[in-house]
């Protein structure tokens, strides 16, 4: 479980996160939703320790990040997998090398064990035929899958995904969502996903947090969000014509 308490983060004068409290439980997909610019990426990077936060505590299964030594932090990092908004694959390396990359650095696997592990992770994301291609030579959806394979290579306890299905067609997006969901349940991972895609919310949103203007505006499940009359939810979710109609139908 990851506990976030009173998280604040600003850039200069601009305060992006104004005290966020939330708990993420293992074995289910925790979704952070909110408009573009609402601070989802900043939140994720703060929890990961890529940003120095102004105040607040982040506790990974009893380990408060602020109190860890440098070595302990490096160890914690090895339990974390991250899928970045743009994939962030190493573009000078092939797909296979990308997935093997963390294994080369940490752990004591032999060359063939590393290969097997990378093969396994790639087949886990249903990508069996692109091992020797470079990131620039595969489609966006495939890049996202490689990024997921790389993120799970080290068997992470915590998985973070920043808009894993942005820029993908609806069908591929659902495939990716379900893939993350499956992996989360199978290995009992604590997974946090940023998204502004309502399809993802309704597909896999076991625990949904809505960020608005630096605050946690709403929290609940995918079933609750459909019936919520909360102003922030209505404002974010039921903006589009499609969802307005859905809401009307639900109210009847």
């Amino acid at each position: 479980m990851i506990e976030v308490k009173g998280l604040r983060k600003s850039f200069g004068e601009h305060e992006v996160l104004k005290g966020i409290d939330v708990n993420f439980e293992p074995g289910k997909a925790n979704l952070i939703i909110g408009r573009s610019g609402s601070g989802k990426t900043v939140f994720l990077k703060s929890v990961l320790g890529l940003h120095d936060v102004d105040s607040g505590d982040i506790v990974y299964d009893g380990r408060n990040v602020a109190e860890l030594s440098k070595d302990e932090r490096t160890l914690l990092r090895q339990e974390i997998g991250m899928v970045f908004q743009g994939g962030a694959l190493f573009d000078s390396q092939t797909v296979l090398e990308n997935v093997m990359f963390p294994l080369n650095f940490f752990g004591d696997m032999s060359e063939s064990e590393k290969r097997d592990r990378a093969d396994f992770c790639l087949s886990r994301v249903r990508l069996d035929s692109a091992h020797n291609r470079f990131p620039a030579e595969i489609s966006g959806g495939m890049q996202k899958r490689v990024a997921i394979a790389r993120a799970i290579a080290m068997n992470p306890k915590y998985l973070f995904c920043d808009e894993p299905n942005s820029g993908l067609d609806p069908e591929t997006a659902i495939v990716i969502d379900n893939l993350i969901q499956e992996i989360t349940e199978e290995y009992n991972i604590t997974t946090v996903i940023n998204t502004h895609d309502m399809n993802s919310v309704l597909e896999i949103g076991d625990h949904v947090i809505l960020l608005k203007e630096g605050y946690r505006a709403w929290e609940g499940t995918k079933d609750e969000i459909l019936h919520s009359e909360d102003e922030a939810v209505l404002d974010f979710v039921f903006r589009s014509e499609l969802f307005k109609k859905v809401k009307e139908a639900l109210r009847k």
Partner: peptide
């Protein structure tokens, strides 16, 4: 610079590198 803007540097840091 490209590695920085495409978050590849962040990816390294997350791995503990």
């Amino acid at each position: 610079g490209t590695m920085r803007t495409s978050e590849q540097i962040d990816a390294l840091e997350v791995m503990g590198i």
